[in-house]
């Protein structure tokens, strides 16, 4: 059994003019120590998926269907009190913008110690010792001195390291990282990603990496799940997905990556025509069909299932024509 198992998850946002389905029939698993990438455009439902796991969806959103199993427990059924002992303890989160995630009026030490003390019976002194150890782990120099400082005394990259250190405090089983490098400089991005990868290997944790950057996913994750308009459209081993994408959307994403070839007509960046639909106006049938170059009649009528392909167990695609002649 997997450590985390999400089945048929549906999340809706109750708006004035009707319900908006943010996640539609999302299922995935995450094993112990596994690194899973969640890829998609803005609004595809990546972040909502991450927040749904720890039951922290912003109002007026809520989980309306499906189950979330973690370590044999139904997270979607836990009381707020029980859920609090999972959040930040067994499953930790890293947010997108480190400039916004740390409380500006509390010292780093306070924000670290309080996290430990929320989950363990531990003295402030002992908690501070653990905090220092974790700051060392994320390569922050002279951590004892740093504990007394406020967030504004750190750079963006340093702050994200601190956020990672906070996530590590309780030795969680899973870290959910929601676009952890999007708000940072490119050079810092690589450092933070390397750090995350290193920590996953040394600290025995699973990672759910939410990002729109396929390059990052290819470097860090073992498996990847592609989302589009609130649905999972393709799941595969990262290496397989990058080498041979099956869904037309995934193909489009990978073609849109800049290559290392010459700058000529032939190597021009490809783009996927159109943009992802607003979640309130998703077309019937396959939600990608208005932008799909392989679109057939059936695509406008029938919603494709997420199905395994013959001879490829770890691979699932939701496309009527994936793996057939028409797509070549």
């Amino acid at each position: 059994m997997s450590l985390l198992e999400v089945n048929n998850l549906e999340v809706i946002f109750a708006l004035r003019h009707g319900d908006l389905v943010a996640l539609n029939d999302v299922s995935f698993t995450l094993d112990k120590r596994e690194r899973l990438g969640v890829v998609g455009e803005s609004g595809a439902g990546k972040s909502v998926t991450g927040f749904a796991v720890i039951n922290l969806i912003s109002k007026p959103g809520r989980i309306s269907k499906g189950t979330i199993l973690f370590d044999g427990k139904r997270l979607d059924r836990l009381s707020e009190r029980e859920m609090r002992h999972i959040r930040g303890n067994r499953i930790a989160m890293i947010f997108q913008d480190p400039m916004m995630t740390l409380n500006p009026v509390l010292t780093i030490g306070t924000q670290m110690v309080e996290t430990l003390r929320a989950h363990r019976k531990i003295s402030k002194k002992d908690a501070a010792k653990i905090a220092i150890a974790k700051l060392e782990l994320v390569h922050i120099p002279s951590p004892e001195r740093r504990l007394a400082q406020y967030p504004h005394e750190f750079s963006g990259g340093m702050r994200q390291r601190i956020v990672i250190a906070i996530a590590l405090l309780t030795d969680p089983a899973i870290i959910i990282a929601d676009e952890p490098t999007t708000a940072l400089d490119v050079t810092i991005q690589a450092e933070i990603m390397d750090l995350l990868l290193e920590l996953c290997n040394t600290q025995d944790m699973g990672l759910m990496l939410i990002t729109h950057d396929l390059g990052v996913v290819a470097e860090v994750t073992e498996r990847v799940m592609v989302m589009y308009a609130g649905k999972v459209i393709e799941v595969a081993k990262t290496s397989d997905l990058v080498a041979s994408p099956m869904h037309p959307y995934t193909k489009g994403l990978i073609n849109a990556l800049p290559g290392h070839g010459e700058c000529d007509e032939e190597n021009r960046l490809q783009q996927i025509p159109g943009s992802m639909p607003n979640l309130t106006e998703i077309a019937p049938g396959c939600s990608f069909h208005p932008r799909c170059e392989f679109c057939q009649d059936i695509c406008t009528r029938e919603v494709p299932e997420l199905r395994s392909l013959a001879g490829m167990d770890e691979r699932k695609v939701s496309c009527h024509f994936a793996g057939t002649e028409q797509m070549q």
């Binding site: 922290l56 930790a92 995630t101 409380n103 509390l106 929320a118 989950h119």
Partner: peptide, 20 residues
């Protein structure tokens, strides 16, 4: 965001409201 983050850290509502 920092309040949402405080929830994600699993802090008690009392601490989030009265301190953070």
């Amino acid at each position: 965001e920092y309040i949402k983050y405080a929830w994600a850290k699993g802090l008690s509502s009392k601490r989030i409201w009265l301190v953070h």
